[in-house]
Simulated scan of single mutants.
Amino acid sequence: MPTEPVNLIKLCVGAEGIDDLLDWQKRLRAIRTARGEPPEHRHITRMWPKREAELLAGGSLYWVFKGVVLARQRVLRLEEVIGEDGIRRCGIVLHDDVIKTEAVPRRPFQGWRYLSMTDAPADLSADRLNETALPPELASALAALGVR
Rank of each mutant, 00 (worst) to 15 (best):
P49F: 05
L94C: 07
E16I: 04
G83R: 11
L138N: 02
P105S: 04
D119E: 12
Q73H: 10
G111I: 06
S125R: 08
G67L: 15
G17D: 13
V13K: 10
R106M: 04
A71K: 14
D85C: 07
A141L: 12
E131L: 14
P135A: 11
C90K: 02
Q25E: 13
K66Y: 00
P39V: 06
I82T: 13
A120M: 02
L94Y: 02
E80N: 09
P38G: 01
I9Q: 14
E80H: 12
E16N: 08
R46A: 15
L70P: 08
L76R: 15
A126K: 10
K50S: 14
V104L: 08
W24D: 03
L124M: 08
E131I: 00
A34T: 01
L8C: 07
T3R: 13
V64K: 15
E4H: 11
P108M: 01
I31R: 13
T132I: 08
L61A: 12
D19P: 00
L21S: 02
G86N: 11
L76F: 02
Y62C: 09
P38M: 04
E102N: 08
G36P: 01
R35W: 06
I92E: 03
L94P: 06
R27S: 10
A103R: 13
F65V: 05
C90S: 04
P108L: 04
P2N: 12
K10G: 03
D96K: 05
P121I: 03
W112C: 06
P2M: 11
A143K: 03
A30R: 10
L138S: 01
D127V: 01
L115C: 10
H41V: 07
Q110H: 09
L11D: 06
P49E: 11
R77C: 11
R27C: 08
A144T: 12
T132L: 03
V147I: 15
H41S: 12
L134R: 05
L138W: 01
I44A: 10
G67T: 06
E52F: 05
N130I: 00
V64Q: 14
L70C: 14
R113W: 15
R106E: 09
S140D: 00
T101K: 02
R46L: 15
G91Y: 12
D23L: 12
P39M: 09
R74A: 15
V13F: 03
P49G: 05
A34I: 02
G14K: 14
R32S: 12
S116C: 04
A57R: 13
G91F: 09
G36K: 10
A139I: 03
A143I: 06
K26I: 04
P121R: 02
W48E: 14
L28I: 05
G58A: 08
A126T: 11
L142W: 06
Y114R: 04
P121H: 04
L94W: 10
H43K: 11
R74K: 15
T132A: 05
H41G: 04
G86W: 10
L138M: 07
P136I: 03
I9L: 15
